[in-house]
């Protein structure tokens, strides 16, 4: 977790009274959720009730982002298996696998005798989750649509795994950092942003995507927010027409994708003319985990840089 080192600084500084009151309020909620005849009872993101007789010791994660959040919540040692591509933190790479998140090996999950299985609504097949429920395995389903849900999910994971203290701390840190970034950047001069998920085919995101909220937190405006699919496929002409102030892309891995420079042949785009082609590693912005703060911090700085180029123009 040393990548998040700069973010660890403001943890104890707090961002004022309101945040603390909010945190206490949530703490209260968690206690209320857990107070059920010695067992644990809580609701998942689809408002289904999940009941565990005691804190889970054996957890199976059905999404790479869930695995990551479990580690952040201090429950890493209780994850007995995870799906493919669970690659963060480093320890997650060596976890036993139960297939890809679209093709789960139900038998293997069953053989692991999990206390709870944590699924992902937009990734897992609903029939597979239903099957697990029928086999009397408690299933908790996540669906992260808002940045604010990430700390809540951390707290709930902490509750299920009996690691409330660390989960609480991590959640508070998340809220504080996000609050700090929003206070600093959200209301600055709007920057029109084109976020490029992929080049071939050319894919962007609309307002329903979590990335849209990251952009807005930094005072950016997603130029394709109004399209009606969550990851719409567009063409180069649409980008020319939208004429964004900044182009932000992620690509496949930790390297800046070569195709980002393909925009250089379109100097008519403001972002190209002002050299505002930015890169954010996909793990820092496309996954609904604590690391999204790294992506947010980076994007906020990049858009700030873009603002300076905009100031220089009439």
């Amino acid at each position: 977790m040393n990548t998040s080192a700069p973010l660890l600084q403001p943890r104890n500084l707090g961002s004022g009274y309101l945040v603390k009151i909010f945190v206490f309020f949530l703490l209260g909620c968690s206690i209320a959720m857990s107070a059920h005849a010695g067992g644990i009872e809580l609701q998942d993101d689809l408002n289904n009730k999940v009941v565990l007789p005691q804190p889970a010791q054996r957890i199976v994660s059905l999404a790479p982002s869930v695995t990551e959040l479990l580690f952040s919540a201090g429950a890493g040692s209780k994850v007995v298996a995870a799906v493919d591509y669970s690659d963060f933190p480093e320890e997650a790479k060596t976890l036993p696998r139960v297939g890809g998140y679209t093709q789960l090996d139900i038998e293997r999950i069953l053989a692991l005798r999990p206390d709870v299985v944590i699924g992902w609504k937009s990734g897992n097949h609903p029939a597979a989750l239903e099957q697990l429920r029928k086999l009397n395995i408690p299933v908790y389903i996540t669906e992260t649509r808002f940045l604010d849900q990430i700390p809540t999910t951390l707290e709930r994971f902490g509750l299920m795994a009996g690691t409330q203290a660390q989960a609480q701390q991590e959640a508070e840190h998340f809220r504080n950092t996000l609050h700090r970034l929003k206070t600093q950047y959200q209301h600055k001069t709007p920057v029109r942003v084109f976020y490029q998920v992929w080049n071939q085919p050319l894919i962007t995101i609309n307002r329903q995507n979590l990335i849209n909220q990251v952009i807005e937190a930094c005072g950016g405006q997603n130029v394709f927010a109004e399209l009606n699919t969550i990851a719409p496929r567009i063409d180069v002409e649409a980008v020319l027409k939208a004429n964004p102030d900044a182009i932000v892309a992620s690509g496949m891995g930790i390297e800046r994708p070569e195709w980002l420079d393909e925009w250089l042949k379109w100097p008519a785009i403001k972002a190209v003319k002002n050299h505002q082609l930015h890169f954010i590693p996909p793990g820092h912005i496309q996954r609904q985990t604590v690391r999204v703060l790294l992506g947010t911090e980076r994007l906020c700085q990049q858009l700030e840089q873009t603002r300076h180029t905009m100031d220089g123009q009439p």
Partner: peptide, 19 residues
């Protein structure tokens, strides 16, 4: 066995795409 990002490209290739 394809990854999400690639899957979209693969499906478009299979359906025929001139982009």
């Amino acid at each position: 066995i394809g990854e999400d990002n690639q899957l979209r490209g693969m499906l478009f290739w299979l359906m025929g795409d001139l982009s």
